[in-house]
């Protein structure tokens, strides 16, 4: 005699393998797969492609930084200080003779890693909290939602400053601060998606089959919430890079001689008139990489939104 638990597991397994007409279903899935459809739409969007190329350019620049430049990012050269762009120094030198192109290339690496790590951290914790809050409801939802409300009550850069004021100024702490301020953004997004999915028929069907909560969350709710999470994460990359640069600019992020773009801008303040290239290039780099992520994010949002297809 099977226990009810075993029967339930068997039912779950059967629900996974049962397919009355496998060929037909595969064809249908091929025809309506929203992801493939979105990718097709994305390929047609010139703005999204431009964004992708911009981001790709900075990723490559960050990777090849040590190979394309003969200079060290922290190599002082007082004789060649504040040199304008030339064949030797493509983007000029800063106030202690460091090559700006080399520093920008290494800075690309720092900015992208900061953006990626902060957004991934926020995404993981935000998604987890959002799912728990949305699915379990009641006091759990109440508690988590109020925490989100409180965190969102602070302008984001201000909350980041508060976190750095506690932990101390460093790139790692700036990264933690950026992750923390982005958690409620992902959390709220996922929570609202989970609440709308919770009452869908396919979730009720899974429940009726006796599927466990964890399995429903992981196999049904999470995959169906992915589209807005991906869009938010892409847009979040750009925001995280801007926030890291802002903290670096205020002296609360990367510390010297780390070639972080925000810090480079803050160092250039005293030489704007004398050497404007120390100001222009780091700023343009931040703008282009953020623009790249925003263009991809916008493209993805349009591609994944069924309303935009018309």
């Amino acid at each position: 005699m099977k226990t009810s638990e075993e029967q339930r597991e068997q039912l779950e397994d059967e629900s996974q393998v049962y397919n009355p007409n496998p060929y037909q279903e595969e064809e249908d899935v091929e025809a309506i797969s929203p992801w493939k459809d979105a990718l097709k739409q994305l390929r047609k969007s010139p703005l999204a492609i431009t964004g992708f190329l911009l981001v790709l350019f900075f990723i490559i620049l960050g990777f090849v930084a040590p190979f394309v430049s003969p200079y060290e990012f922290d190599g002082d050269d007082p004789i060649n200080r504040l040199q304008p762009p030339s064949a030797d120094h493509w983007l000029g030198t800063d106030d202690i003779g460091r090559d700006i192109f080399t520093r920008l290339a290494y800075g690309a690496r720092i900015s992208l890693i900061t953006g990626f790590t902060a957004v991934t951290g926020a995404l993981v914790f935000g998604t987890l909290l959002g799912i728990i809050s949305g699915y379990f409801g009641r006091w759990v939802d109440m508690l988590i939602s109020r925490i989100f409300d409180i965190l969102l009550a602070f302008p984001s850069i201000l909350l980041a400053i508060a976190v750095v004021a506690i932990l101390g100024a460093s790139l790692t702490n700036a990264l933690i601060a950026i992750a923390i301020i982005n958690i409620p953004i992902f959390g709220r997004l996922v929570r609202s998606k989970v609440i709308s999915l919770r009452e869908e028929e396919f979730i009720l069907a899974a429940k009726a089959q006796g599927m466990k909560r964890g399995r429903i969350l992981l196999h049904h709710i999470l995959p169906n919430s992915l589209a807005p999470i991906i869009v938010q994460a892409t847009l979040g990359f750009g925001t995280a890079i801007l926030e890291a640069a802002a903290l670096g600019f205020l002296g609360l992020g990367a510390q010297p001689p780390t070639p972080e773009w925000g810090k480079m801008l803050s160092d250039s303040r005293d030489f704007i008139q004398l050497a404007p290239w120390t100001l222009i290039f780091p700023g343009v780099s931040i703008m282009l990489v953020v623009l790249g992520f925003n263009l991809i994010g916008d493209g993805l949002r349009d591609a994944l939104d069924p309303k935009m297809k018309n």
Partner: peptide, 21 residues
């Protein structure tokens, strides 16, 4: 789009350089 992507502290410094200095 460019406006959304621009670090405001950079824009502030650029303004200061061009219009003030």
């Amino acid at each position: 789009l460019v406006g959304v992507s621009m670090p405001i502290f950079w824009l502030a410094l650029m303004e200061q350089w061009v219009f003030a200095q």
